[in-house]
Design a binder for these strands. Structure first.
Lengths: 127, 127
DNA sequence: TCAGTAGTTCCGAAATCCTGAACTATGGGA
DNA sequence: TCCCATAGTTCAGGATTTCGGAACTACTGA
């Protein structure tokens, strides 16, 4: 158990943020942490939609988010509390997180609409 | 020489854009293509700062940008013209590209300032 | 002390990335 | 027309990264 590493706000690099959020699973995890009053244990994000994320994968996703500077993790007894650092990142890179999370949100709603339309016609949506 | 693939605007996925721009080399290439009146041959971006990018790497970077929907490439005789699709992407994901390119720009100027300060003190900037 | 829970680390397999070498495609002389 | 130069692509390999199961550590409560 090596100590948790959190980059200082001025050491956060845009490429790390983009890389961290370029994985839809990680983006979804981050969205939950941002949305859930800024605190969320790892266990509570272990399923995404209908997909189960293995513990070891989840642990490394959380680590990537932490080392990118997107979240701050603290051990509280046996569990881990993950806080969003969204406000700090927003101050350093204005508009970045909002635009990224918006892009995913609009993508999701478009995909859902397409799936619904396909289901209504009794078809799978065309790839 | 298989034909060039360009995704339709509605098929562009945020994760592809983030992945494409999460590499600083690709982000720099894209910045040049955006900046250079929207047209730039591959050969003209073959060096980035003081680093030379091998032809094969450049070709695959351009391919990643193209398949993410960030640029449009056309063969003109022996060379390739790369146009930015920034306006289209902006319409689909408002604010995304601007925020990303801003983040890199502010990072670059911060790094340059730090390097200058270090040079003024006769030190290398601390990692 | 023991059992249970939460998360991390390790390690092998799979996927991805980088790049030199060989290749294709085009244009311009001679 | 043939040959060469230029611009870029494809292929193959090795290096790096990612994924996930198994074993592990850390903490709590009984």
């Amino acid at each position: 158990m090596r100590p948790l590493v959190h980059p200082a706000i001025e050491a956060i690099r845009p490429e790390a943020i983009l890389h961290a959020l370029s994985d839809p699973s990680r983006a979804a995890i981050f969205a939950r942490i941002m949305g859930a009053g800024c605190v969320e244990a790892c266990a509570s994000v272990s399923t995404l939609g209908d997909r189960v994320i293995p513990k070891s994968s989840l642990s490394s996703h959380i680590k990537v988010l932490r080392e990118a500077g997107l979240i701050r993790s603290e051990r509280h007894g046996v569990e881990m509390r993950n806080h969003s650092r969204g406000a700090e990142v927003e101050a350093r890179f204005p508009g970045l997180l909002g635009a990224i999370m918006n892009a995913y949100a609009s993508e999701d709603s478009a995909a859902r609409a397409a799936a619904d339309a396909g289901a209504a016609e009794g078809q799978t949506p065309s790839a």
